[in-house]
């Protein structure tokens, strides 16, 4: 059983939802990434999505693009990201780590070489934003051959046929993008998310995480009542951006703990 699957099963037994924070590897400084990952776990993260910086993050909004630019300015490559995961694994062998990024840095290494190296580093899943299922047969195969979960996106506009295509390839969980637009966009319509999730969950047969537009404990809690996992990215990056040096981990911890409380809150 994959670490991701085990995590979801454990949470399900406790009737809890997963919190999946996203940070960009190397932002604001490569030395801070592993301490930040531990801080995320200490404040309630169940799975970590670690962004691999790319020069042209077309599907991301300005916040995550800036994080990518800061990391690239410090020379963070995909191989360096894998080293960070391996360092994290020295002290944490439980929390699943999912790499999230774009195809080109992976293809520059080579999909098969990357998959083997990612497994060796202790990566559990990989989400390539610009690999839709129709271009992913080889990628998904390389992932499976190395015991990695290929994670796919679904959107409000995805047809039933597309949900079925994703179901063929996906393992671990699927990531439902809760609104049209790029990461960090403003509006979030919980009602429409709630209407769509049961159908998707039934079709894909793996847990469904929801992200894009989740900014506070309240929206995180509302999403947790309809989805299996809550993904928060841009809001955390903003916190990193706004924190004075030396306070980054503490402030991110406070934010993530607050999101955790929102997700676990059982009032109403």
């Amino acid at each position: 059983m994959s670490k991701i699957q085990a995590t979801f099963e454990r949470l399900q037994a406790q009737e809890r939802r997963a919190l999946i924070p996203f940070i960009t590897a190397g932002d604001p400084d490569p030395e801070l990434t592993v301490p930040l990952m531990h801080a995320l776990v200490e404040s309630g993260a169940d799975i970590i999505e670690l962004g691999v910086p790319f020069s042209d993050p077309m599907a991301d909004g300005p916040t995550i693009q800036r994080a990518s630019e800061r990391a690239l300015a410090k020379g963070v490559s995909l191989r360096r990201v894998l080293e960070m995961v391996a360092n994290f694994r020295a002290d944490n062998n439980e929390t699943p780590v999912v790499l999230m990024g774009y195809a080109n840095p992976i293809e520059a290494v080579g999909v098969d070489v990357f998959a083997a190296a990612a497994f060796d580093a202790g990566v559990d899943g990989v989400l390539v934003v610009d690999y839709p299922p129709e271009e992913s047969a080889g990628f998904a195969q390389a992932m499976r051959a190395n015991a990695l979960d290929p994670i796919f996106l679904l959107a409000p506009t995805s047809t039933r046929e597309r949900v079925a295509m994703v179901a063929e390839l996906a393992s671990g969980y699927v990531y439902y993008v809760s609104l049209k637009g790029v990461t960090g966009s403003a509006q979030l319509d919980v009602e429409s998310v709630a209407r769509r999730i049961p159908e998707i969950r039934a079709a894909v047969g793996v847990p469904v995480g929801v992200g894009f537009g989740i900014r506070d404990a309240q929206t995180a809690g509302a999403i947790a009542r309809v989805a299996d996992a809550v993904v928060v990215g841009s809001r955390i990056i903003e916190e990193i951006e706004q924190s004075p040096a030396g306070e980054v981990c503490a402030r991110v911890k406070r934010l993530v703990a607050d999101l955790r409380r929102g997700i676990d809150f059982r009032g109403q």
Partner: peptide
């Protein structure tokens, strides 16, 4: 060639 975009753009 191909269609290497995020799922959000596929329907468009």
């Amino acid at each position: 060639g191909g269609v290497f975009v995020a799922e959000t753009l596929i329907p468009a």
